[in-house]
Amino acid sequence: MALSETYTNRIDLKLVAEMVTPGTRVLDVGCGDGALLALLAETRQVDARGIELSREGVAGCVARGLSVIQGDADTDLADYPDDSFDYVILSQTIQATRNPRLVLEHMLRIGRRAIISFPNFGHWRMRSQIFFRGQMPVTDALPYSWWDTPNIHFCTIRDFVTLCEVVGAQKERAVALDAAGGKVGVSAPWWFWNLFGAQAVFLLKRG
């Protein structure tokens, strides 16, 4: 993964990239400045496409040569045909969507696989802020106060597993990362992941 060091320091992005088979077609929903798309295009030689809400993000992506459309995950995924991508990726974005269930269903319809990474609201530091301080958690990774946060649908790893069951998604891989970016023990039970995983990455396919 040495090459990817030049593209990103974000461990979750590298983990997502590892899950993608080289030479495939990938749609990154909420691609931001295009860091993951650029990483995938360079290291996995994928046909990389993106959707991004912010005008600045899209302009930046196009200026670095990526195929990115200004659009909204909540409304624009409906326009994509079935099976048009090998992977549809939602990186650190599901908590900001208005209808996470619908977004996930569209991802599983458009792509043969879906990859979702998200912050775990069940992490012990989150729990401790609510438990001891009685306040909504504010962390380095999630620095917003409750009144101005774009994140309107937080979930824990356990909650996300429930959503997967509701939409009939099948888990091919699931990885939890601790706050330092290390993988939480592979054979650990769910309650352990849910407590010590700062974020999680799921590789899903239709059930």
């Binding site: 005008r55 302009a59 195929s67 990115v68």
Partner: peptide, 11 residues
């Protein structure tokens, strides 16, 4: 998009 074309769009 429906045709699977490589397309960028910005307003």
């Amino acid at each position: 998009n429906a045709a699977g074309a490589s397309v960028s769009f910005v307003e």
